[in-house]
């Protein structure tokens, strides 16, 4: 079925806290593939998080599950352990996910890789307001670099159509293994 496998074999999708929409890049590239969201038991055991925040996120998972044709599962546990188990259950050759800037993102993927050494991890770029990816230090330096892009050309923008998200087919997913040095 379309979106379930690549040339390498079956795909699963990791749905995380920054990607709770069926329009998420990794999810929409594989609408039929099994997807998993995990409430992080070790994190929640050691950090106070109000129930209302978790219920809000649940609403995101619920809408994703209802909107896509593929299986969407919700679990509670260690994220990397549950992802590894999910990959094994579905005979996955690849784990697809959209980029997340948190330190936990890299450590969770490392944990999955330790448990499933043969699993290829493919990371999709997060949808962003600007294309700038250089060093940032102060907001105003950043703003000077991006404002014409963000504002859409200032005065020139007034009569133009708004920029549109890049079509899925033009997005270039990245193989995490080829880009290890970029993230700490």
């Amino acid at each position: 079925m379309e979106g379930v496998s690549t040339a390498n074999g079956p795909v699963i999708v990791w749905l995380h806290g920054d990607s709770l929409s069926p329009t998420d890049a990794a999810l929409s590239a594989h609408p039929q593939a099994p997807a998993l969201f995990v409430f992080d038991r070790p994190f929640l055991s050691s950090h106070a998080i109000a129930f209302t925040r978790l219920a809000f996120m649940y609403g995101g998972v619920r809408d994703v599950a209802a909107a896509r044709p593929g299986l969407t599962e919700l679990r509670v546990g260690s994220v990397s352990a549950e992802l590894a188990a999910f990959a094994t259950e579905h005979g996955a050759a690849e784990l697809h996910v959209t980029e997340n800037p948190t330190p936990e993102f890299g450590s969770i993927l490392s944990g999955v890789r330790e448990r499933c050494p043969g699993l290829r991890v493919v990371i999709y770029p997060a949808e962003r307001l600007s294309s700038y990816s250089g060093q940032v230090n102060k907001f105003f330096g950043f703003w000077n670099k991006v404002q014409s892009e963000v504002l859409g050309g200032g005065e020139l923008f007034r009569d133009q159509d708004a920029p549109r998200p890049q079509p899925e087919s033009e997005r270039r997913p990245r193989d995490h293994r080829s880009d290890r040095n970029r993230r700490r």
Binding site: T23, T52, A55, F56, D63
Partner: peptide
């Protein structure tokens, strides 16, 4: 949601198991 999710996440949250002031989700 409050009862079932609250039971599934027992011991993993603070405060009362209630709906948030605004609903989450794509819709």
């Amino acid at each position: 949601l409050p009862e079932v999710l609250g039971r599934s996440l027992a011991g993993l949250y603070s405060g009362e198991a209630r709906l948030p002031a605004r609903p989450g989700g794509r819709n």
